[in-house]
Simulated scan of single mutants.
Amino acid sequence: MAYKAIADAPVVWNLLNGVVCLYKSAGQSCKATKHSFFIKLASELNSMKVRPPYTYVDIDGPTTKQMDVIVRPSYADNPLVCGPRYSADDFKSFVTTPLGFNTSGVMILGVNKGTKKAFVIREQSPLRTYRLKCALGYETDNLFATGKVIGEVRYKHVKQHAMEKHLSIVQASHQRIAYESNGVDPASQEAYELAVRGLVRPRDSKIPIIYGAKLISFNPPDFTIELSCINEYEDYLFAQVHTLGHRLNSTATCTAIQCVHHSFFKLEDALLMKHWTLEEVVANIANNNRLLRKQGRLSDNLNRYAAKG
């Protein structure tokens, strides 16, 4: 059945079960993004054909004569009395990995029955890739461009090859940490066998690990780096930029941060706010379901989780 042929809100509501890939704007929390998203969906649902008010049986007339049995609509269930049929609070949701307030980009949201799928995705400790725009020569009190400038340092001596070298050192040192946290020597046969099985994750899920660090552009004082990592958080990424600046005998501050890849979800899969419509969301859920079925071990875990109830 084509979506545009559906006029009944309850039918569309039943299609809103799955994982949605949204684009979160910077300067907004995940909670606020979710609320805005569900308000738009609820508003569109309420503009469709919703269920009629419940009815009640009214027995009317004098008790000394035959009384009339009349079925009337309940005013207590009328939208003018109890409010719209759908509201943002009606949706169940679960964010796989909340993005920071200053971070924009890919945000994975489980909706209604899709919260189970979102939970399983989070449990897999998915790899995420961030693009960080940075500036050399100054630092702020919160390590981000919105903070108060607390120091300015020269930066013209910083060269592209030196930055690339330090990023490769960061990547190598973090990969060593991933092996050592599993009690494995990175140069051993055991480490090779561990790597063959896939991404080597630390045993402690609270340890941030950077698996990829590369320079995307270099135009001093501005530069852009790309970090692929797990168990990260916004302030940790800001601190990496700050540390990089000091290693180059200067200082650096992050000016913008964007999540461009979350597990197998890419930036082009994310719905912009202008696309937060029922038609686009239903199509996005269907596409994401197809992606999930292709993900081998993740798909198996989803099936096992569903079997548990």
Score class of each variant (00 low, 15 high):
I177T: 07
S217W: 02
E232V: 01
K165W: 12
I210M: 01
E164S: 14
N231V: 03
H174E: 09
A213S: 09
G183V: 07
I169V: 15
L227H: 02
R176W: 01
L143E: 05
V241W: 00
M163S: 04
I216T: 11
N249S: 13
E193L: 15
Q171L: 11
R203A: 11
A191Y: 03
G212F: 08
N182A: 05
D141R: 10
F218I: 13
P221C: 14
H161L: 10
P186Q: 09
E232N: 02
Q240W: 07
A187Y: 06
N219M: 13
T224I: 15
A172I: 07
V170I: 14
D141A: 09
V149H: 10
I177E: 02
S188T: 11
L199C: 09
P186D: 04
I207V: 06
E193F: 15
S188L: 12
F223N: 10
K165G: 10
H242Y: 15
R247G: 09
V241F: 03
F218C: 05
E193G: 06
S217P: 06
D235Q: 11
K148F: 03
H174W: 02
V158D: 01
P208G: 02
N231K: 01
L227N: 02
R176Q: 11
V158A: 05
V170L: 12
D222I: 02
G245L: 03
R201K: 15
G151D: 10
S173Y: 10
E193A: 15
R201Q: 09
D141L: 12
Y233K: 06
Y155G: 02
A187W: 08
H246Y: 13
F223L: 13
R197Q: 15
D141M: 08
L227E: 00
L199A: 03
N182F: 06
K156L: 08
A213E: 00
Q171F: 00
V158M: 06
H242C: 05
Y192L: 15
S228A: 12
N249F: 15
G147S: 09
Y179H: 07
Q175S: 11
E193R: 13
I210S: 03
S173I: 06
V184G: 06
D204Q: 07
G198F: 07
K156A: 10
Y211G: 00
R247L: 11
E193N: 14
I177R: 04
E180A: 04
Q189T: 13
A178K: 00
E226K: 00
K148W: 03
K159W: 08
K148A: 11
K148R: 13
V200R: 08
Y233V: 02
S228I: 02
R154S: 15
R154P: 02
A162G: 11
V158N: 05
P221I: 11
M163N: 07
E164C: 12
S173Q: 13
L227Q: 01
S250A: 08
T146H: 08
G183D: 12
Q171K: 15
R201T: 07
T224F: 04
V149R: 12
N142S: 14
Y211I: 00
D185W: 09
C229E: 00
S181E: 07
N142I: 14
E226Y: 01
H157N: 11
G147R: 12
T146R: 10
A213P: 06
A191W: 05
G183Q: 10
L227S: 02
N249E: 00
V149D: 03
E232G: 01
I216D: 10
H166P: 05
R176S: 10
I210Y: 05
L167A: 07
V153E: 14
